[in-house]
Design a protein around this nucleic acid. Structure first.
Lengths: 222, 222
DNA sequence: TGTTTTGCCGAATGACCGGTAGGTAAATTC
DNA sequence: GAATTTACCTACCGGTCATTCGGCAAAACA
């Protein structure tokens, strides 16, 4: 008899923690999820957390398994390989991501996104880590990141174009502004992760959008 | 007799390739560098390139050694450990960095820095990779990155303050602008590394500085 | 010339890692 | 209640990695 130590619950889930249960495959049995899927979700939560802390390369399957109170091979029963596990994590992340992207209908929504990110450092870490790791040759996250950049910039540029036409009041084109806003978001996340107190992400994102839209400076003197 | 294959010369050195030889310890012998130091520099060049391609965690000592036509143990004769090697790379990088930081006397210099970075993707990759890796617990680059952020932001804020006082025409404070400029630089580098053609770093950094300084939009219509 | 130092390599070590094979017990299905 | 599927484990394997040890030849030095 080996006692297992299923380590405390994960800090944040891939599915938005407070999101209403999706109207997909109907919940079977008394318990919430369709039996088999629950463990999978637990594992994905653990993987998200572990990859977020150590990166994909840095994390070991054993470490992920330990988080759910499983042996490494028990974990491999649910996901055939480490890479498959990452893919699954990203796929689930993608659902949320698409929803968030759709939410960027106006530029102010970026500030809201920044604020929400403040409350889920694990996800932000995962994103930052994978974006960098994806640069190294044939990393499983490369395509994901590249694709994500394209979508985000495109979506943002589209929004800006509908709001301001082919040139913002500041003189920037929608494409330029999109690239800058995306870059600022990523860069601020890094600074914030290193020193949360010195960087106010929502505030700075709001400032940048205002400035790019050519808003007049705040009339109230300091 | 085992033929070695010392792989072609590195694309870029840690010391600025065209910088004048430093007036430090006098060059001994006919050849340029003081005998022993030359191999060390070769190794550091190789390590910079390798770490830039695979990251610190992802790179192996053997791979670095191969680049200089050395065995892994031969390399360890010059640097006692992998970590020591990274530290040495960063220390050498620091010299250049300080010089570049001093060059940021006016905001326009940022555009110049972006342009120079376009010509040394290896260094940019190293920087991006290590910044992310440094987030993972007790990484040898953590302190370096944290410290670097502090210095860069401080230096930038100082420059902005001398140029514009306590508030830029755009309404941003020097500290805010410094954080945003730093973030944009980092973020643009990532986007640029993923897709060099779609992102014009110098152009966008120039645009951002202009916008933050509250410059009027370019009067010439598209 | 003899001695020491330097530069380097071959071999070995121990840790860890991802992944495979085979088995077992419980749950599910019939 | 029998058959099958699912969930998971123990044991194992081949590979890579950083690091250590001991030795050897060339260079530097005396």
């Amino acid at each position: 008899m080996s006692e297992q130590e299923p380590v405390p619950p994960p800090e944040e889930s891939g599915r938005e923690s407070s999101a209403p249960p999706e109207p997909g495959p109907p919940a079977r049995r008394g318990r919430g999820r369709p039996r088999a899927t629950r463990r999978r979700d637990q594992i994905l939560d653990a993987a998200l957390a572990e990859f977020g802390e150590s990166g994909f390369q840095g994390a070991s399957l054993a470490a992920v398994a330990r988080r759910v109170g499983l042996s490494q091979q028990g974990l491999l029963h649910h996901f055939p390989s480490k890479e498959a596990l990452l893919i699954a994590v990203l796929a689930r992340r993608d659902e949320v991501d698409v929803r968030e992207l759709d939410g960027l209908g106006d530029t102010a929504a970026l500030t809201g996104l920044a604020e929400r990110n403040t409350r889920r450092p694990g996800v932000v870490r995962l994103h930052s880590l994978l974006t960098a790791e994806g640069l190294t040759g044939d990393h499983p996250a490369s395509a994901y990141v590249r694709d994500r950049y394209a979508r985000v910039r495109e979506r943002l540029a589209h929004t800006l174009r509908t709001e301001h036409g082919d040139r913002l009041p500041s003189g920037a084109t929608p494409d330029q502004a999109a690239a800058l806003l995306t870059a600022a978001m990523d860069g601020l996340q890094l600074q914030w992760l290193y020193d949360p107190d010195s960087v106010d992400m929502p505030d700075l994102m709001g400032l940048l959008t205002d400035v790019l839209r050519g808003a007049a400076p705040d009339p109230t003197p300091p």
